[in-house]
């Protein structure tokens, strides 16, 4: 499946294999991992939760948006849910395109859109407590909007 919510560790190569095409001159892969320190605060582990059926639909929508914007692009995305430890892989995005610039741009677009419209939430477990995290910008996501320059820093 090209767009998937996984409960087990993600096989990175199998995501890449989904976008192999003879027309492609480039495949970019983004691997999102669990970071230990955020602004000096130590994370012990994360728990990701998804509204799974809608999340798959929204990942598919991102794939469609990319194919409309970057001609000849092929996209596969797998996001993991459940308990993840530091360094574990949370999300893998593979994009293939005829030329490399498009593959980089389209992959960046995919992760920014995930952070806007895909119903997945993470709960941070720190040494001294836990909290569900809203989006990192403390703003409300706009489901039909697009990432702005200021949104691209996290």
């Amino acid at each position: 499946m090209k767009f998937e919510i996984a409960k087990e560790p993600i096989n990175i190569q199998s995501v890449i294999d989904q976008v192999i095409q003879r027309e492609a001159g480039a495949i970019t892969t983004f691997i999102g991992t669990v970071r230990e320190l955020t602004h000096g605060k130590k994370t012990l582990y994360l728990v990701y939760e998804a509204y799974e059926s809608m999340a798959v639909k929204k990942l598919e929508q991102i794939g469609t948006e990319i194919q409309e914007r970057w001609s000849g692009a092929d996209v596969a995305i797998t996001h993991r849910v459940g308990k993840l430890d530091i360094t574990d892989v949370a999300v893998v995005i593979a994009v293939s395109t005829p030329h490399r610039a498009d593959a980089y741009e389209a992959n960046r677009y995919a992760i920014e859109r995930i952070k806007e419209i895909v119903p997945i939430w993470k709960k941070e477990q720190w040494e001294d407590g836990q909290e569900w995290i809203g989006n990192q910008l403390e703003t409300v996501a706009y489901p039909k909007g697009e990432p702005e320059a200021k949104d691209l820093d996290e």
Binding site: A90, V91, I111, I114, E116, V118, P119, I120, N135
Partner: peptide, 10 residues
Amino acid sequence: IAFIPPVSGG
């Protein structure tokens, strides 16, 4: 109907 808090995947 689903109530969707600001998302934090990725």
